[in-house]
């Protein structure tokens, strides 16, 4: 674990009466630096928080936004919940799959994009929506998606 990663985790530990409370934070910190959470990362979190690796993994595998597999540089999360569905997220998903040449849950061969579905992003009045990295994009059309993807390295 890098000193920076360790320092960030220690900072979170100070906010709670018990170390285990920062399990999710620690996983997110390692993921931020490494792109995903490997088995090795699970063991490192377990060690620093004095938990068993299986306990940590039971948390890691529970959340939609902890990646237990390597991802592309940009993870695209397309909302497929009710408001976006009513407003046509189906065709948005089809457009993305076709354009990127991958299915949901896959990464492009050049390692640029990973495509995943996500539950309601809370952008229901501006549906359809998707989240790329940490940014939510709203009122999507195939054209705005194309323009957005071209800008991403």
């Amino acid at each position: 674990m890098s000193p920076e990663e360790r320092q960030e985790i220690e900072h979170e530990i100070a906010c709670y009466p018990y170390k285990q409370a920062v399990c999710v934070d620690a996983l997110k910190i390692l993921q931020k630096h490494r792109g995903w959470v490997s088995d090795e990362a699970v063991k490192e979190v377990a060690e620093i928080l004095e938990m068993s690796p299986s306990e940590v993994d039971s948390v890691a595998t529970f959340y939609n936004l902890i990646y237990r597999q390597p991802t592309g540089r940009h993870v695209i999360h397309v909302c497929d919940s009710i408001s976006c569905w009513v407003m046509g997220c189906g065709s948005i998903c089809e457009h993305l799959k076709k354009r990127l040449g991958i299915n949901m849950g896959e990464t492009t061969p050049d390692g640029r994009f990973t495509l995943l579905p996500i539950v309601c992003l809370g952008a229901c009045d501006k549906a359809p929506a998707m989240m790329v990295g940490k940014t939510t994009h709203e009122n999507l059309t195939p054209e705005t998606i194309d323009a957005l993807l071209e800008k991403l390295p």
Partner: peptide, 27 residues
């Protein structure tokens, strides 16, 4: 006041699941 950001799971809105999530347990 501490801000805790989750990692995305609907059940965390259920108040006792939320408490387990805050404790770092499977929610």
């Amino acid at each position: 006041i501490h801000l805790h950001t989750s990692a995305g799971r609907y059940i965390c809105g259920e108040e006792t699941a939320l408490l387990n999530a805050l404790e770092g347990k499977r929610a």
